[in-house]
């Protein structure tokens, strides 16, 4: 059933040697300048400024409803901000549609899964290779020559990712029938298949057990270090965030309240206040390891439905 796949580390983008992660100090790959986004009267984002630097792993954290997903939606072109600019590699692309953002080299995953449920794992990952398939409609209709060749080439690349994520056994299973954790993994694979420069992950480990979280953390670190992919991720598990991220941005009520390396954020008074809803400057006892999904005293808004 399977093709001949040899386990090997995932090579870098075709033609380029793997880049060394530049970490903090890298030049900005994406700049968000003074962005505001409202839904009716509700300000989901309020004059947010931030930059994502080449080669880093950036965490975006904040209580429920802080505007984290909205920020990703604005960056990936799902929503267009009422105010402000977005620059990708120095070029203004504030009003780009999602497909144009994707073709610039930005991939993302969704908080509540954005897979093509009736399609198999393989087909889902193959959609990530779309921009590399340049054969025309008529050749595809005959599945002949260049069309077949392109399919095979992209299939080989996808098999490497399948291998990398350890999902060989479910290759031909429709993703809708897989357990939640597995679907999250497949969605990460689909984003990686696009060979993005910038990867946006919306709670990639939500609802996973410790072991699964460790796996995903490993994949994220490998993607960053071996493939040189810049990553921005939203995550509530502070343990994971502190472990794998180079820098943290904290949002609260649509505004950025802090931005810095983990050690600094951990003791930032505004952050502690945002999470505990007090003016007490004592660090919260469980903040370094536990989930900080909910702000104490704020009526907990559930996860935002996304389609």
């Amino acid at each position: 059933m399977s093709g001949p796949v040899t386990p090997e580390p995932l090579p870098g983008p075709a033609g380029e040697p793997p880049r060394i992660a530049l970490k903090a100090g890298g030049r900005p790959i994406l700049q968000v300048e003074d962005i505001s986004l409202s839904f009716g009267g509700l300000k989901a984002l309020d004059r947010v400024n931030l930059e994502i630097r080449e080669g880093e792993i950036l965490a975006i954290i904040g209580p429920n409803g802080a505007g984290k997903t909205s920020l990703l939606n604005v960056i990936s072109g799902v929503y267009h901000p009422q105010q402000g600019r977005i620059l990708f590699e120095g070029q203004d692309r504030t009003r780009f549609r999602p497909h144009a953002v994707a073709n610039q080299g930005v991939a993302r995953t969704f908080q509540n899964l954005g897979l093509f449920r009736a399609m198999t794992v393989l087909e889902n990952l193959m959609t990530g290779r779309k921009k590399f398939i340049r054969t025309n409609f008529f050749l595809q209709a005959m599945f002949w020559g260049p069309a077949q060749k392109a399919e095979i080439e992209q299939r080989e690349r996808v098999e490497q990712i399948i291998d990398f994520l350890g999902i060989e056994h479910i290759r031909k299973v429709p993703v809708g029938t897989l357990p939640y954790g597995m679907q999250k993994r497949v969605e990460l694979g689909r984003a990686l298949a696009a060979e993005p420069k910038l990867l946006l992950l919306d709670e990639p480990m939500a609802g996973m057990n410790l072991e699964e979280k460790e796996d995903i953390s490993r994949f994220i670190l490998d993607a960053n270090e071996e493939l040189g992919i810049t990553i921005a991720l939203i995550e509530h598990d502070m343990g994971v965030v502190m472990d794998i991220c180079d820098r943290i941005v904290v949002l609260d009520y649509g505004s950025k309240i802090a931005d810095g390396p983990p050690a600094e954020i951990r003791n930032h008074p505004d952050v502690i206040r945002a999470y505990l809803g007090t003016t007490d400057d004592q660090p919260p006892p469980a903040s370094a390891t536990g989930d900080i999904t909910d702000r104490a005293g704020r009526a907990g808004g559930g996860p935002i439905e996304e389609t």
Binding site: V78, G114, F116, T127, E151, T307
Partner: peptide, 24 residues
């Protein structure tokens, strides 16, 4: 079984995600 068919089915299953994958 080609790229066109996959893109169509992606649009059918979840159009937002299809667009995010670069499908117009």
């Amino acid at each position: 079984r080609s790229e066109v068919g996959r893109s169509w089915r992606a649009i059918r299953d979840l159009d937002v995600a299809a667009e995010i994958m670069g499908i117009r």
